[in-house]
Each structure stands twice: as structure tokens, then as C-alpha cells.
């Protein structure tokens, strides 16, 4: 193969290499700009990823929804319809296998169905929040300390939602961004 041809092929490959991360960015940006923001009560813990660095893993309070249907499989994709409760936090309305036609919804994974309570347990995909390596563990501690305050759970994740896809924008303790909260501690 001539150098020219190799070079043209390489330029094509280089473009694809640039497009993949760029496409990831555009996709998320559009959700952040046009999506609707919801607050999800959460609880952070601290693991790590070899390539992407430290993150806090978020355990959401919202993980069960009452459903009529009994036939669910583990790791199945389910659409969770959500709305705000009286305190302004997200609550699950219902779960379905088909994309809901109206209202806001998030694509989540089914975990298991409990016959006794007729509830479906599910996991949200936006459960990793990346933080500077020195702050990730402190964030977990800060949340635990903040729990001792009078409010029951004052840590929440701000998530933008559009067409079932979600972007986790930030995590707040007492309405202060978690990174700032850790810094002030």
C-alpha cells in the first residue's frame, strides 16, 4: 500500500477516534441543556476505578416501585416513570418494559421482584460520581456526619433527564455541592 493511502486511512481512523469522545460529550451536553432536573436522595460510598480515577458510588433511596405485573427478569432494561414528591425529590410512579409516551422516565436495570410487597427493586445507571482523589473518601465521611443533623437525609444527586437518558450533574449535601462542602469541612 502506498504511503498516501495509508495516510488517508489513518486520517479516517483519527477522525473516528476523535468522534467517539466528542459524540459522548454532545450527547451529555444536550441532556444537560434540554433535560429536566430531578433531585434523587442518595448515600455515597467510596470505591475507585483503575482508569478513570476515584469516584463515589451512590446508593439511591429510591430503588423500589410498586408494580402490577409479576414477570420481571434480573438485569432487564425497565423504564421507571418519575415525578416530584411534595418535598421536591424524585419518586417512582411506575415501571414498564415499553417506553412511556408521556411524562419523565429513566432507563434503569431491574434487580428483583418481591411478591410479598409486590414491588420491583431496580438500579439507576447514574451511580458513579467522579471526584478529585483526595476528596472522594472525605465525601463519604461528610455525608455520614451530615446525617447526624436533624433532617433525615439531606444528600441528593441532581440528575438531568431527557428521553430516558440521564446525566448526573452534581451531588449536594444540605444544598451545597459536595466538593465545596468537603473543602469547607
Amino acid at each position: 500500500m502506498k504511503t498516501k493511502h495509508i495516510f488517508i486511512l489513518f486520517v479516517l481512523l483519527a477522525l473516528v477516534q476523535l468522534c467517539i469522545p466528542a459524540q459522548m460529550i454532545f450527547n451529555r451536553e444536550s441532556i444537560l441543556k434540554q433535560g429536566i432536573a430531578y433531585k434523587f436522595k442518595t448515600e455515597p460510598v467510596d470505591p475507585s476505578d483503575p482508569f478513570k480515577g476515584k469516584y463515589i458510588y451512590l446508593n439511591y433511596d429510591l430503588r423500589n416501585v410498586e408494580v402490577g405485573d409479576k414477570d420481571w427478569h434480573r438485569k432487564q432494561d425497565v423504564y421507571i416513570s418519575i415525578a416530584n414528591d411534595s418535598l421536591g425529590f424524585a419518586k417512582a410512579v411506575t415501571a414498564s418494559l415499553e417506553k412511556p409516551e408521556s411524562g419523565d422516565f429513566v432507563l434503569a436495570k431491574a434487580d428483583w421482584y418481591s411478591e410479598s410487597t409486590s414491588e420491583l427493586r431496580f438500579s439507576f445507571p447514574f451511580n458513579e460520581f467522579y471526584m478529585e482523589e483526595s476528596k472522594a473518601y472525605d465525601a463519604e465521611v461528610a455525608h455520614r456526619d451530615a446525617q447526624r443533623d436533624s433532617l433525615p437525609n439531606n444528600t441528593y444527586a441532581l440528575v438531568y433527564i431527557k428521553d430516558g437518558e440521564a446525566v448526573l450533574e452534581n451531588v449536594f449535601i444540605n444544598d451545597i455541592p459536595i466538593a465545596t462542602f468537603v473543602e469547607n469541612e
Binding site: M24, R28, K52, F126, Y130
Partner: peptide, 22 residues
Amino acid sequence: TIGSSIALVSQIYNIPGNLSAY
């Protein structure tokens, strides 16, 4: 650098990663 670029974008937007897909 291919790996670092995808990793950093995932980090900026908190894209949950399963490692094998990455």
C-alpha cells in the same frame, strides 16, 4: 491517549462505566 480521552470524558460527565465496555 485513546484510552485516556474516553476515560476523561466519562469522568467529566459521570458516565457510569462498566469496565469491559470501556
